[in-house]
Design a protein around this nucleic acid. Structure first.
Length: 605
RNA sequence: GGUCCUGUGGAGCAGUUGGAGUGCUCGCCGCCCUGUCAAGGCGGAGGUCGCGGGUUCAAGUCCCGUCAGGACCGCCA
């Protein structure tokens, strides 16, 4: 090393030591006769003083972010000049030597912890952005998360195993990223949406305990918590029950929060069934930091003359409500704003009544349509007090109405300030449905087609696909799904019946993932696993608003990388060589399960 | 594919009902300065107001289109 010490580590005890430091000029304060330079390296900042001689003369030329080598003696600061804001504030380095290792051009992005720049500039100059304390801390925190995960899993006998990223379509149901194959012109690899099939093959292979910090690729639109390439902590285990996987998930998540957030998660983490989550919170990933639960009023409003409600009830649907505490004080404009809010998410509107703060009398446009009796009992039925507002949703489709109320619940909590930003609330959502209807009335897998029905349904899920439950579980933190998994099907007969329900013919199944079914002919063990959404978890631990903060080189919403300029067009020569436009040769002979085009898997969730 | 927010020197922001000269902080360049720590003082450079079109006597400001960044819906375990 060309330095002897780290800048951020110097303390009063180091006084008298001659040190050589290497780092960047974070700030300079040039007083003419004396020059102060804050020298920053990865460990922190220390003040360097230039007073006289050649180093002082050279120090006048220093500018922000010059990379320098400084030699000098660590001295206690003169009395009264200590800086309690800095860990190194009791000392300073009196420079006797200065070498400029490299100069810095005027900065397009100030390396300054006080300034929040736009994403555009930050990503274009991400290497400068990451010199700042906050962004660097988020990336280092992620390294810590990786370390903790490896420690916990290593202690439990797991093997870290890499799987291919040049492969074929996996059954997650998103769009694939495709890579042309020069050696087989006209054929394409797909980048894996997850290592799902490979990890199941590793269980067939008898490895028993697998994990991987795996990069996954899905060609879908961006969100604050979604990038096209993202990372999962991917885990699979043999000979386990759902409880075993959940216990392991709690061990990993518990270690992460304890070490990185200083928070001990009460265990066991509460479990809530999927149906209960939907009926109480209108979401399959409920935020349990606050109450504001939904009320089912389908019975209560039976026989109502209000057409909107009556139609939903008659169609076997759902009428429900959610209460906004103190919502009666909202202005007409704010209440109208809720209608726009509801319309923005595809609903016709959001019916409401407000309860007079003095009398408790129900008022509002909808109140006129409801009977005296229904209005009189409403407050008790939904648990509202005078001064509250009650929002209603009604639909022939129960889930649609519940999800609208669930979204309203989140918005209510936000607007009414009910969210404790320092709170952590975890839960498992279990007993997810196996199947749901597609738009064409077919069945599709809610999780993926290898998810096992639970013990109650495994022999009879065909009887009521809409009610059948799976051994599938999601872990939720503050309303974010941070992981999910399932017990997989290991019996050929069950797999065949599931495919049958999904309308996947044996030929189709063979074409899409015959290699897995082939493997399952040879004594596959019962197995299951979980995948933790690593970017989201790190985002939550870092207290960030976007997963971009915990990704070293993220992309913008348009899939563009402002730093490298990717993606780029290719030349005609590259196009020809890659075989982008080549027609695939008709395969003469194909091993089982490897034929067919890499079409998207239609019947999976 | 849809809805919404933002775009003003290198960075962060202000700019009122359309009305004379686009302003502030930081940074940059020059000079001064021996105890600062987001140092200070004096002086200076730097802007097609994202781009294109329209309305108007007059547009940073209003309208249409477009590009870029962001949030959400659709989509996506």
């Amino acid at each position: 090393m060309i330095r002897t010490h780290e800048a951020g580590g110097l303390r009063a005890a180091d006084a008298g030591t001659t040190v050589t430091l290497a780092g960047w000029v974070a700030r300079r304060r040039d007083h003419g006769g004396v020059i102060f330079v804050d020298l920053r390296d990865a460990s922190g900042v220390v003040q360097v003083v230039f007073r006289e001689g050649a180093p002082a003369a050279a120090a006048h030329a220093l500018r922000n972010e010059f990379c320098v080598l400084v030699t000098g003696r660590v001295d206690p600061r003169p009395p009264g000049n200590e800086n309690p804001e800095l860990p190194t504030g009791e000392v300073e380095v009196n420079a006797t030597g200065l070498t400029i290792l490299s100069e810095a051009a005027p900065l397009p992005l100030p390396v300054d912890d006080h300034i929040e720049a736009g994403d555009d500039v930050r990503l274009r100059y991400r290497y400068l952005d990451l010199r700042r304390t906050g962004p660097a801390r988020a990336i280092k925190l992620r390294a810590g998360a990786n370390r903790i995960a490896r420690r916990v899993l290593d202690e439990r006998g797991f093997h870290e195993i890499e799987t291919p990223t040049l492969t074929r379509s996996t059954p997650e149901g998103a769009r694939d990223f495709l890579v042309p194959v020069r050696l087989q012109p006209g054929t394409w690899y797909a980048l894996p949406q997850s290592p799902q099939l490979f990890k199941q093959l590793l269980m067939v292979a008898g490895l028993e305990r697998y994990y991987q910090i795996a990069r996954c690729y899905r060609d879908e639109d961006f969100r604050a918590d979604r990038q096209p390439e993202f990372t999962q902590l991917d885990i699979e285990m043999s000979f386990v029950t759902q409880d075993d996987v959940i216990e392991l998930g709690e061990a990993v998540v518990g270690a992460l929060w304890e070490d990185l957030a200083g928070y001990r998660i009460p265990t066991p983490i509460p479990r809530i069934t999927w149906h209960e989550a939907m009926s109480r919170y209108g979401s399959d990933k409920p935020d349990l930091r606050y109450g504001v639960e939904l009320t089912d009023l389908s019975q209560y409003f039976a026989g109502t003359a209000f057409r909107v409600f009556a139609q939903a009830i008659d169609a076997g649907g759902y009428v429900g409500a959610v209460v906004m505490p103190g919502g009666a004080t909202q202005s007409r404009k704010e209440l109208d704003g809720w209608q726009d809010w509801a319309k923005a998410r595809g609903a016709r509107g959001l019916a409401y009544v407000v309860l007079d703060a003095e009398t408790g009398e129900a008022r509002g446009p909808v109140a006129r349509n409801l009977s005296e009796a229904h209005l009189a009992g409403l407050a008790d039925a939904v648990g509202a007090k005078p001064g509250d507002a009650v929002f209603f949703a009604a639909s022939a489709d129960r889930r649609e109405a519940q999800e609208l109320l669930g979204a309203a619940r989140i918005e209510i909590a936000r607007r009414a300030g009910l969210v404790d930003p320092d709170a952590w609330a975890f839960c498992w959502v279990v007993d997810a449905p196996m199947f749901e209807r597609t738009d064409d009335g077919e069945w599709t897998a809610v999780h993926h087609p290898f998810t096992s029905p639970n013990g109650e349904w495994i022999d009879r899920f065909e009887e009521a696909p809409d009610q059948a439950l799976a051994y599938a579980y999601d872990i939720v933190c503050n309303g974010n799904e941070i992981g999910g998994g399932s017990i997989r099907i290991h019996r050929a007969d069950v797999q065949r019946r599931v495919f049958d329900t999904l309308g996947i013919s044996p030929e189709e199944a063979d074409e899409k993932f015959g290699f897995l079914l082939e493997a399952f002919k040879y004594g596959p063990p019962p197995h299951g696993g979980i995948a933790l959404g690593w970017d989201r978890i790190c985002m939550l631990l870092a207290g960030a608003e976007s997963i971009r903060e915990v990704i070293a080189f993220p992309k913008t919403r348009g899939g563009f990388d402002p730093l490298t300029g990717a993606p780029t067009p290719i030349t005609a020569a590259q196009r020809t060589e890659a075989g982008v436009d080549a027609k695939p040769k008709t395969p003469v002979e194909v091993p089982p399960g490897t034929s067919g085009v890499a079409v998207r898997v239609e019947h999976s969730g």
